[in-house]
Design a protein around this nucleic acid. Structure first.
Length: 582
RNA sequence: GGAAUCGUAGUUCAGUUGGUUAGAACGCCGGCCUGUCAAGCCGGAGGUCGCGAGUUCGAGUCUCGUCGGUUCCGCCA
């Protein structure tokens, strides 16, 4: 091997007449009989090599045999090109090769490296190390790398200290399913992989590390989505002697810094805030996409006056108005109807606005003066379509919340490169779980209740607001956190409400409860979903595009075929017996 | 746990109401070619139609099951 003097993206016209060595992969071969052009590639770029049979002293027949993705090492002279290639950063020059070494000849490739679309995803995942040679993934991983650096630099400069917490920890009730790790030394007992380092970071506050952060892997054994992997990365932050405003101001500044330094986008100095209540009512969703309008409107007062009886018994009736939607054909409306049905809606009612009147769909159930009132109140315009769902609150919000995003995409209302951050505040502390028949924490059991609501903890727990906050950008929840409970008694009260009795609380969280008795400072924090943040920076809808070795929707790694069977000896050593599945 | 959708040369896809020898492009192999840059031109090889049953004289095509990919609902404190 000739040790490289330059990378494949480095050479410019000021290098002309220099003798250089390059190492890399064959990107393309253009064979013209007596002259051969080869683009050599590494992660820095591409450079054209030329082999001329009249000048090349080596074995020209060997050069002819070179094929795409072979690894080579060359030495030669930089010279100006006859015709410049403006597509290439190194397009002003080429390297006339004197010596060639083929370092590794590639086997026939399962798919084409220069085109990510040339193979289906399962194939690319099986050969992920090849897909990682593509420009897009190399760019995305570079974004990710630069984000780590910006985060570490910003937080370090602000006196945050990076502390590693255990990956083998105690399994906790509540929240996501844990990934369990059997203990060999203590047969029959298990560690869990952290869903987040939540308890550890709170203990670090008790220990006096008043500004902590960590870029840390977290694990949740739940079903996957386009933006969810079983193992993912958080930027975990916790601070002492602070309130919500401190966390929000540092987090806003950190987010702005990342967007500025990584993709050169300037976000507003402060991010707008919305309450959970308003977000649900206006957008049907606790992570609203504010890049477009199409707000949910409560229309129950109108439908109750109409002759359309299907909505009379509905708990809630809401509508979205799509400008220009009156062009929708029966077929498109059917598609939208099927779409809202996936969120539990029984159907999708509609009316079009044409020539100043409501027409089609269920419009015949609305008498003239009612139509006029609606036109004025809702500021309806010719060309609009009203899409309506009546059902219980959850279904109305879920279905119309999803539909507004669907139609916004359909209508091209989402502008590329537009970022609309928002803080969502004032979450309820608890939700009622119908199946389990008990209260569950909306955020997590360590979230502090709003002091104003503290007396309602016993009388009216579902109306207690928490001191939690989420940061949302473009409909993606990229972070969330809270001010924590730092008082043992309040913590015990919350556990009671969650149906975790004293014994269980002691067994599961005794260490934390006890720690809170030894001088626990007021504290709070936030965790950013790093992968989702990178998705925004990389402008991709899929989390697999920002993770080097991701898993499939069924949590498999197609590359190494995990999870896989283990030997009987391994199981025996752990004291584990498998139950035969039928 | 549920729903939708996809699975055909190495790869991406086409394949008619079920009917003769399953096609194309790219890649691969061989040949020609001294200025290309997705090089070009000529030729060739390459298929258990995911897997398993069933219906039928006959299945890539229809039915059922199963495995795998993707997306969504449930789930994700």
């Amino acid at each position: 091997m000739f040790k490289r003097t330059h990378t494949c993206g480095e050479l410019r016209s000021n290098h002309i007449d220099k003798t250089v060595s390059l190492n890399g992969w064959i990107h393309t071969v253009r064979l013209h009989g007596q002259v051969i052009f080869i683009d050599i590639r590494d992660r820095y770029g591409k450079t054209q090599l030329v082999f001329d049979s009249e000048d090349y002293n080596g074995n020209f027949e060997q050069v002819k045999k070179i094929s795409i993705e072979d690894v080579i090492s060359v030495r030669g002279n930089v010279r100006a090109r006859g015709s410049v290639n403006p597509e290439l950063e190194t397009g002003e020059i080429e390297v006339a090769v004197d010596e060639l070494l083929i370092l590794n000849e590639t086997a026939p490739l399962p798919f084409m490296i220069n085109d990510r679309e040339s193979a289906t995803e399962d194939f690319r995942l099986k050969y992920r190390y090849l897909e990682l040679r593509t420009k897009e993934l190399q760019y995305n991983l570079d974004l990710r790398h630069r984000t780590y650096q910006v985060v570490r630099k910003y937080l370090s400069e602000n006196k945050f200290i990076e502390v590693e917490t255990p990956v083998l920890m105690k399994s906790t009730p509540e929240g996501a399913r844990d990934y369990l790790v059997p203990s060999r030394i203590h047969k029959g007992r298990f560690y869990a992989l952290p869903q987040s380092p939540q308890t550890y970071k709170q203990l670090l506050m008790v220990s006096g590390y008043d500004r902590y952060f960590q870029i840390v892997k977290c694990f949740r054994d739940e079903d996957l989505r386009a933006d969810r992997q079983p193992e993912f990365t958080q930027i975990d932050i916790e601070m002492s002697f602070i309130d919500e405003e401190d966390i929000i101001s540092y987090s806003t500044a950190l987010t702005r810094k990342v967007f500025q330094d990584v993709i050169n986008v300037e976000l507003p100095e402060t991010f707008p805030r919305i309450t959970y209540h308003d977000a649900m009512n206006t957008y049907g969703c606790d992570r609203p996409d504010l890049r477009f309008g199409i707000e949910l409107k409560d229309i129950k007062s109108y439908t109750d006056q109409s002759d359309f009886n299907a909505f009379k018994s509905a708990e809630m009736v809401k509508a979205i108005i799509v400008p220009g939607g009156s062009k929708y054909s029966r077929k498109i409306i059917d598609q939208l109807t099927d779409y809202v049905k996936t969120s539990g809606a029984k159907g999708l009612a509609w009316m079009k606005v044409q020539d100043g009147v409501l027409t089609g769909g269920i419009s015949k159930f609305f008498v003239d003066h009612l139509q006029k009132t609606m036109m004025v109140d809702m500021e309806l315009k010719d060309g609009d379509i009203i899409l309506m769902v009546g059902d219980n609150t959850d279904i109305v919000h879920a279905s119309l919340g999803a539909l507004r995003i669907n139609v916004a995409k359909r209508e091209g209302l989402i502008i590329k490169g537009d970022f609309k951050p928002v803080w969502v505040m004032d979450f309820p502390m608890f939700e009622w779980d119908e199946k389990a028949h008990r209260h569950v924490a909306m955020h997590h059991p360590f979230t502090a209740p709003n002091p104003k609501d503290i007396e309602k903890l016993n009388s009216d727990p579902l109306h207690v607001l928490s001191r939690g906050y989420d940061i949302v950008i473009n409909g993606s929840e990229i972070g969330g956190g809270s001010i924590r409970i730092h008082d043992t008694n309040v913590q015990q009260q919350v556990f009671d409400l969650l149906g975790i009795n004293k014994e269980e609380a002691q067994a599961k969280f005794g260490f934390l409860l006890e720690a809170l008795t030894y001088g626990a400072p007021p504290h709070g924090g936030i965790a950013f979903g790093l992968d989702r943040l990178i998705m925004l920076l990389a402008d991709t809808e899929n989390i697999r595009d920002v993770i080097a070795f991701p898993k499939t929707t069924s949590a498999m790694s197609l590359m190494d075929n995990s999870p896989s069977d283990v030997s009987d000896e391994q199981l025996k050593e752990l004291g584990i017996a498998l139950v035969k599945q039928k």
